[in-house]
Design a protein around this nucleic acid. Structure first.
Lengths: 303, 303
DNA sequence: TCGACCCATAAGTCATGCTTGGGTCCATGA
DNA sequence: TCATGGACCCAAGCATGACTTATGGGTCGA
């Protein structure tokens, strides 16, 4: 239910004029207000005259030594002060955000990225800008992208195989790094090529990783038997080291943790994994977000 | 101690643009905001672009289906809503004052005027505009004028002899009525002219009334012996009726109360008393004040 | 592939807003 | 007493700013 405007033809008060009136009230004269505004006196006079015309009543009484407020003017001054306070507060908040002195970035990252890259970046960001807060959540790339699309997150740290992930929709993507995918086998295995592992048992990762594995194997002429699945690259290596199966892992996972009992083999047929950030176009210009992106990029370059 | 501006070159947010941004946020798109504002889409786009330039950060992220707010935009929206609420409230208050639906008039009146004129006017005003409040104080003309000059009152009901009162300074004066001053004597007196009362005892009124009496008597060739003084025209007539002395009273005082035991004589030498209103120039345009003035004038015309 | 919707940019025109240069009224001081 | 200065208003000129039209890019859905 919308309340009907009491005056349908009301032009609504021009907020700029209201602030000019506030200066007049504070200075006690039109000339004084003009001086503080850096204007000439007639300019203030015209603004005030039109404001009074819009208001329908006098706001000040002109005297030889300046002006005094009417009842309407006293009431409006209180409102004008509130308006000025809000604008001042808004300007302060915006300045803090613009300088990235403060702000909150909602980051969604895939689980294993949270292992090294994200902690490094967050630590550096916090050291540089202690007031910037980062909300971190873990989600696989498809869910992470969905969260950004739904405006539940600002930044998604995602990966794709041999290129950016798909399903980005209108989101922008910027790569952080690109890494090879390795073949990881047990100590007793003699095979060194993917095609030799048609009869092996496989340990898969997340659904998309498994999909990529299956695609690579089929390109090599067989369909892998995936017996176990886990995201955890420590668990995976323990399984492989004990001969339960073989697997594939990206380079960074192996650099974060390397089990002594596995062999890591180069296998170009497994392609490369591209890790990067997905975000709504323009979000990279938000200062706090830009700061986090910069630190993520720096952390990625040291991997 | 003034706090230094955090950004000395800050242009300060243009409040009009802030309200435009608010419409964008509420509509969810620039085009939608343009429609509700009755503008074209580029107009809104330019306003928002400049506001973002002034703010130093993006406020919305442009998407193919509209815009979504950034953190800065969400913060600014809250402030903008507060600004809009203040402006709306101010407009409502001003409208009520402009229509004289409400308002407060501070009236200072000389004591005997409060007897008939002021009550009549206040009753009529209250019947017509029950929300308009009148603060009534009693004071003799010089004090009443001083109160208006000091902005402690809006309207002074004052009188002067043979013209407006003096000491008005920059105040405006408008006459309400003009009345003769009568000679009031006891029942036994045979004299009918002022000059015959050189040896009588006199009852005086307020200081200025006494001054006028003395001036008239001196013009008639004698200095009156003023033995008693009271403002109250009932008391005065009682004193005169009992032969304590003679006095002068304005016509309205005699119409408000007439003691049977006094004789009232016309005496042109006593001049006339002019009753009117003193006010700061422009104050008569304030709607509530204008309404009171109109009712005072109407009440005066029926005297 | 087309059309509908979103947005940005460029250029033009018109209105607004500020300035300059008058003028009046009051107060103050020589 | 008159002159000065400070307050305000009014009228006119002019430049800035704001809104318009016109155009182009982009995404989504039919």
């Amino acid at each position: 239910m919308t309340t009907a405007d009491p005056a349908p033809d009301a032009p609504g008060l021009d907020p700029r004029r209201v602030l000019v009136f506030r200066e007049v009230a504070r200075a006690g004269s039109l000339s004084g207000a003009a001086r503080t505004l850096g204007w000439t006196q007639p300019a203030v006079s015209q603004h005030l005259a039109r404001l009074e015309r819009d208001a329908g009543t006098a706001l000040v009484l002109r005297g030889p030594a300046g002006v005094t407020l009417t009842e309407a003017g006293r009431g409006l001054l209180a409102r004008a002060d509130a308006v000025a306070a809000e604008l001042r507060a808004a300007a302060g908040e915006l300045a803090a955000l613009a300088e990235a002195r403060t702000g909150t970035v909602r980051l969604v990252a895939f689980p294993s990225a949270a292992a090294t890259l994200v902690p490094d970046a967050l630590a550096a960001l916090h050291a540089e800008r202690p007031e910037v807060r980062v909300g971190l959540e873990e989600a696989e790339p498809p869910e992470a992208v969905a969260q950004v699309l739904a405006d539940d997150a600002d930044l998604a740290l995602v990966f794709g195989y041999d290129g950016p992930p798909d399903g980005l929709g209108p989101l922008a993507f910027t790569a952080l790094y690109d890494e090879p995918v390795r073949l990881v086998v047990g100590p007793g295995a003699g095979a060194v090529r993917l095609a030799d592992l048609a009869d092996a048992d496989w340990v898969g990762g997340c659904p998309r990783c498994r999909g990529h594995l299956v695609a690579c194997c089929e390109a090599a002429g067989f369909t892998p038997r995936v017996q176990h699945s886990t995201d955890d690259y420590v668990v995976v290596q323990n399984l492989v080291a004990r001969g339960v199966g073989v697997t594939v892992l990206p380079e960074t996972a192996l650099r974060a943790y390397r089990h002594d009992g596995v062999r890591v083999l180069e296998e170009p047929a497994l392609g490369r994994r591209r890790v990067g950030l997905a975000y709504r176009p323009g979000a990279e210009t938000v200062p706090a977000t830009a700061a986090l992106v910069a630190h993520l990029r720096r952390a990625a370059s040291t991997i």
